[in-house]
């Protein structure tokens, strides 16, 4: 593709993403933050983010797909174990999970 079309793609994609953000601002200016509609949108965003993360771990499209589901779940379990063991420190959980994933991937192939 030409340089011009690649630039066009980047800028158009940025604008097309910004539309959603701007719409969010428009909506938020019009609603009551204590109301039922806000509560529903709040639930939708939590469900979306949780779904996205669940997909990244359980049905990954990244290189993680090469690792078995059992290995991925084991690494998540180790991460949560370390997280609660070390007074809910995120660093402890992430470090334990990431390292155990690397170790299992290296050993199990």
């Amino acid at each position: 593709m030409s340089t011009e079309s690649l630039w066009l793609i980047v800028l158009a994609c940025a604008a097309a993403t910004f539309i959603w953000r701007a719409l969010g601002v428009v909506v938020v200016k019009r609603i009551d933050a204590q109301g039922a509609f806000f509560q529903w949108v709040n639930c939708v965003s939590y469900a979306m983010v949780a779904g996205l993360i669940f997909r990244m771990i359980v049905m990954p499209e990244s290189d993680l797909a090469a690792v078995s589901l059992t290995t991925r779940i084991a690494a998540v379990a180790i991460a949560f174990g370390a997280y609660f063991l070390f007074k809910q420190r995120l660093v402890a959980g992430v470090l334990a999970g990431g390292l155990s994933m690397s170790a299992m991937a290296a050993w199990l192939g």
């Binding site: 509560q39 939590y46 983010v49 771990i57 998540v76 992430v94 999970g97 991937a105």
Partner: peptide, 28 residues
Amino acid sequence: VLGLIFVSPLFFALVLSAVPGRAERFSM
């Protein structure tokens, strides 16, 4: 690299596990 890719969803999973509120938890 696999460990590093894995860190991103793991981080969010840990952060979200502490979300209070019944409605949010059900939704997740």
